[in-house]
Simulated assay, not measured.
Amino acid sequence: MNPPSAHKNACSTSNPRLDNTTDKDDASKRHPFSLPLSIYNDRNMKHTAKLLLIALLLTCLGCAARTAPDFTAPSLTQPNTNLSLANDRGKYILLAFWSSASQVCRLQMPYIQKTWDAFKDRPNFTVIALSLDDDPNKTIAYSEKHNLTFPQGYLGKWEFDTVRPAYKTRGIPAIFLINPQGKIIATNLRQQDIYTTVKAHLNP
């Protein structure tokens, strides 16, 4: 443990030789998330300090996460049923807005399928893909051709859809991860990041 004088100097906000402020004044000038520099100079404390800072950052991000707007969409994979966030509350939900007419959207589908195959048996995970094709039969045909088996719903034509605008997306694909509390915790996922992000949350 560093002696009191060394700790005081390490925590000072300015050169101790030029600063005559008290310890109380020094503390008031520190950033609320700052830690004494002596911690970083102690080899045994570096890892702990790093974990603490990461935890503080994640806490702040969690506070800023916004609630995912709920919706109801007719299912393309389970006839005569609807998909909604409310039905899957308590799960991690990989939510994807897409269209089979979009090449960029089509590029994401194998990664969503990979994620579905890996975690579909987990009771706390599901996928909801929402199609914006101008005809639901196009989505069904594409999915059958490419063996896409994850749950899908249909939103209708782009210009009439009201769900996607609620998520403040300007284009597609738009892929989100929603936590069991209904908060959006990841946005704009692409390709391998789709799988790795879901895996990181399901296997912390």
Rank of each mutant, 00 (worst) to 15 (best):
M109G: 01
F176S: 03
S99A: 15
T187Y: 04
A10F: 15
P110I: 10
L61C: 06
Q191C: 07
L107T: 05
V163E: 06
A6T: 11
R66I: 14
S84E: 00
T139M: 10
S131I: 01
A174Q: 04
S12I: 00
R30M: 10
D25N: 10
P69I: 13
D161M: 02
F33V: 05
P32Y: 12
R170S: 13
S131M: 02
I140C: 04
V127L: 06
C60T: 14
A10S: 14
Y92T: 00
A65G: 05
N15F: 10
F71Y: 14
S131C: 07
L53E: 11
H7L: 14
F33P: 02
A73H: 00
R122P: 13
G171A: 15
T59W: 13
Y40A: 12
R43Y: 09
Q192D: 15
R66P: 02
A129E: 00
G156D: 02
P32L: 06
L202N: 08
L177I: 10
T48D: 10
S34Q: 07
S38E: 07
S38G: 10
T21S: 15
K114P: 04
T162N: 10
N87P: 00
S143F: 06
N20L: 09
I54T: 13
K91Y: 05
S99G: 15
P123C: 04
A186V: 05
T13N: 11
R122N: 15
A68M: 07
Q108W: 05
